[in-house]
Simulated scan of single mutants.
Amino acid sequence: MTPLVDLGTRKFWRSLGRPVDLAGAHAWLRAPTSTSAVVRDGWLAAEAALHGGRVDEDSPDAGLLASMAELDGPGFRAADLLPQVRDFYEHTAQWHVEVWSAWAPWAWPGGELISRFFGKRVEQLALPTRPLDVAKGMDSRISVIRDAAGDQVAAGWLRTLRATGDYVFSGCYSQRTLPGAQRPSVHVAFPLESGNVQVFLKPSVLRDGSLWLESPGGRFGGDGAYVVVEDGGRTYASRAPVHETFHVYVDDRGVLRTDHVLRMGRATAMRLHYKLERI
């Protein structure tokens, strides 16, 4: 039954999307996919092989980005960031993450259904729907994807529940410049069977040195969320009505924190709060 559900989901997003050429004009949408229904970390080796390189699991100082300066351009300068913010992104493996979640009442039933019948089954995008889901903590692992020269081209951030070992998120992090853009965006791809969910986040530095990341609504080809599916020998992509903001800042006691807001259209569906501590 579940393969039919997954196939039906791909057909749905195909009907909303447009054909894309990932080897040509739409190469900015090329991202890892999973060859099986259960995602976990199975996509890492294939992604490294595509770059002629390897997966580095032995880098205790690994970061989601090799350097935040990769994002430099009009409207963003990594040198203006607070040192703690920059350190987190460049040396993520050295940080411990605690998370709290709160759903809007109208969105919780849908979130619970998606998490229970999809996220937990495929071990991907299994958003916590109850505070106690993450009460015992969440473990994270950074797997660096290197090219043939040994340079970091992306990083896998794999987060699992400490209580059960189940995967919550398995994402591929890098920087990517969208068509016509003057500066790179933070690119996050969540592999799925025969497709993926992708988010392009526009970075900004606020006056206090904190980081603001935003995936707004807008035209196809701009920052925001996308669903990409492979179906019938072709690839289709659609904008998704999901918008996110991340505010990464240092509080008045010197603790690094993140406020993460997920919206469906204009309505807030979920809030997540992260406390980040250097190991």
Rank of each mutant, 00 (worst) to 15 (best):
L44W: 08
L44M: 12
L44C: 12
L44T: 14
L44Q: 10
E47W: 09
A49K: 11
L50G: 15
G52D: 09
V55C: 13
V55G: 09
V55Q: 09
D56M: 10
A62Q: 07
G63M: 04
L64I: 07
L64N: 02
L65W: 08
L65E: 04
A66R: 03
S67K: 10
S67D: 10
M68D: 03
L71T: 00
D72F: 09
G73T: 06
G73N: 06
G73R: 05
G73K: 05
P74S: 07
G75A: 07
G75E: 06
R77G: 11
A78F: 12
A78R: 12
A78M: 12
A79I: 08
D80T: 08
L81A: 00
L81S: 01
L81I: 01
L82D: 15
L82C: 07
L82I: 03
V85T: 05
V85Y: 02
R86N: 04
F88C: 12
E90Q: 10
E90Y: 08
T92C: 03
T92K: 02
T92H: 02
A93M: 06
A93W: 07
W95I: 01
H96N: 11
H96K: 13
V97N: 05
V99Q: 15
V99C: 12
V99W: 07
S101I: 08
S101C: 11
S101F: 06
A102I: 03
W103A: 07
A104V: 01
W106Q: 04
A107S: 10
G111M: 04
E112P: 00
L113I: 11
I114P: 00
I114Y: 11
I114Q: 10
S115H: 09
S115K: 12
S115D: 10
F117T: 05
G119K: 00
G119T: 00
K120D: 11
K120F: 02
K120H: 10
R121N: 04
R121A: 05
R121F: 06
R121K: 10
V122K: 13
E123I: 01
Q124G: 08
L125I: 03
A126N: 15
A126R: 08
L127Y: 04
P128L: 07
P128M: 07
P131L: 06
P131Q: 05
P131I: 03
L132K: 13
L132C: 09
D133M: 04
D133F: 00
V134L: 13
K136E: 14
K136V: 09
G137A: 02
S140G: 15
R141G: 10
S143R: 15
S143A: 13
I145W: 05
R146F: 08
R146K: 15
D147N: 14
D147T: 05
A149W: 09
A149S: 14
G150S: 04
V153S: 02
V153P: 02
A154G: 15
G156H: 04
W157S: 06
L158W: 13
T160F: 04
R162S: 13
A163L: 01
T164S: 15
T164D: 09
G165E: 05
G165P: 06
D166C: 06
V168E: 05
V168G: 05
F169W: 14
F169H: 11
S170N: 13
S170A: 13
G171L: 12
C172Y: 10
C172P: 02
R176I: 00
R176H: 05
T177R: 15
